[in-house]
């Protein structure tokens, strides 16, 4: 019971913190005013925090979904016998791609798609594919030889083997890749507001530009809580997926 209880608490507390911040921050004008009396507008009001959070989650969710579909698809393709010769090239792309800093990917997307949410989404997808892809390949490659031999011996077909043996056994690493992809996306989406995407990065960037530390703190607190919430939820799913496999 304690493990389940602790697991639930691990998800609950960042989410609670996020909810609390979303409710409390807009009402904390006097507090920020008392802290930084020199600011005329101590609370960010251009867009509501709830709307920014929703947009942030939407962007990250969409990007992660696309990343999972692409990463999983390419990863599975590159580990099939017929297309296996592509594996080194796929792996090279995943490894070299991850040395590209997220900011760089974002910056490169701008000239292609202009300002706004589109380049951010592209950057998130491009960058988000890599961890999913890398972990899918690693996960499938690390499936134990005896398990595969046993599946072959029992007369599993190629796709059935993939679906019932390889993917379930690789689910843990793949989920870890999804989690990493989502967390990186949360951070990159934040910077995305520097190229015009509407995310929780907006108060931070605007605060930095106009020297309004209160905005910066508000945005940073929300982003931190959001990131921890998403990580906690995905970590819980990862644990659930790994359960019974190790």
């Amino acid at each position: 019971m304690t493990i389940a209880g602790r697991g639930a608490w691990r998800i609950a507390w960042p989410c609670l913190a996020l909810a609390l911040l979303l409710i409390a921050l807009p009402r904390m004008g006097p507090v920020f005013h008392a802290w930084m009396p020199e600011l005329r507008a101590p609370v960010y009001t251009r867009t509501s925090f709830v709307a920014l959070t929703a947009a942030h989650i939407g962007l990250v969710g969409m990007a992660t979904l696309i990343a999972v579909v692409l990463g999983l698809g390419i990863g599975i393709l590159a580990t099939r016998p017929a297309t296996r010769s592509l594996l080194p090239t796929v792996r090279a792309v995943a490894v070299i791609g991850q040395t590209f800093p997220p900011v760089a990917v974002l910056a490169i997307a701008v000239p292609l798609l202009g300002f706004g949410a589109a380049p951010t989404l592209l950057a998130l997808c491009l960058y988000g594919v890599l961890p999913v892809l890398g972990q899918t390949v690693a996960g499938i490659e690390n499936v134990s030889r005896p398990a595969l031999d046993a599946a072959d011996g029992m007369g599993y077909g190629r796709w059935r083997k993939l679906w019932e043996v390889e993917l379930p056994l690789a689910a843990g690493p793949i989920m870890a890749g999804v989690r990493l992809s989502a967390i990186v996306s949360v951070g990159t989406a934040t910077i995305g507001s520097a190229v015009g995407a509407s995310t929780l990065g907006a108060p931070i960037i605007e605060g930095l530009v106009s020297n309004n530390t209160a905005y910066v703190v508000q945005g940073a607190l929300l982003v931190a809580a959001l990131a921890m919430s998403i990580d906690a939820v995905l970590a819980w799913i990862e644990r659930y997926v790994r359960r019974g496999l190790v």
Binding site: V216, G219, V223
Partner: peptide
Amino acid sequence: QTVPSIALFAL
């Protein structure tokens, strides 16, 4: 590690 870099800088 989960906190985005820019948020940590800002905080």
